[in-house]
């Protein structure tokens, strides 16, 4: 066990709902990593089922969205509540200096964490130039 204690973060509701979505949307917490080949985003989306996830890259804007499965709440009455249940939505503007190929975006769901990987276009990857000794 590490000494660090896991702290609670309150869910942040998404403000821009564009007027078409119903129900509440919350902003998932994310970790974002980058290396020379790819950008990787891990987002906490507990309760989202694999068939209700969408990941879209359009004009440098990445949108991740996940919907919770409500079937699991049928016939239940809350008697005590600390968190609200809702869908997840978050958008990221990717740096335009990097070009990510929309065809090379992959995503997987692992224990309530959405893992998105965006591969950088070949041309934008740093490459090592071999120095030949003549």
């Amino acid at each position: 066990m590490t000494a660090q204690e896991l702290e609670v973060k309150q869910k942040q509701e998404v403000a821009d709902k564009e007027g078409v979505r119903q129900g509440r949307y919350f902003q998932p917490d994310v970790d974002i990593f980058e290396d020379e080949n790819a950008l990787r985003i891990h987002a906490d989306v507990p309760g989202v089922t694999p068939d209700r996830v969408s990941v879209e890259l359009r004009n440098d804007v990445l949108t991740i969205q996940g919907e919770v499965d409500l079937g699991a709440y049928d016939g239940l009455k809350p008697v005590y509540a600390e968190y609200n249940v809702g869908h997840y939505l978050r958008r990221f503007r990717l740096p335009s200096r990097d070009h990510y190929d929309p065809e090379k975006v992959s995503a997987r769901l692992d224990n309530g964490v959405l893992e998105v990987e965006l591969l950088k276009s070949e041309a934008r990857r740093p490459r090592r130039i071999e120095v030949r000794a003549d």
């Binding site: 590490t2 660090q4 204690e5 896991l6 973060k9 994310v30 970790d31 974002i32 990593f33 906490d44």
Partner: peptide
């Protein structure tokens, strides 16, 4: 590589 953002907490509970 590097870390751009780290919002997801970790630790024991």
């Amino acid at each position: 590589g590097g870390v751009h953002r780290r919002e997801r907490g970790h630790g024991a509970f």
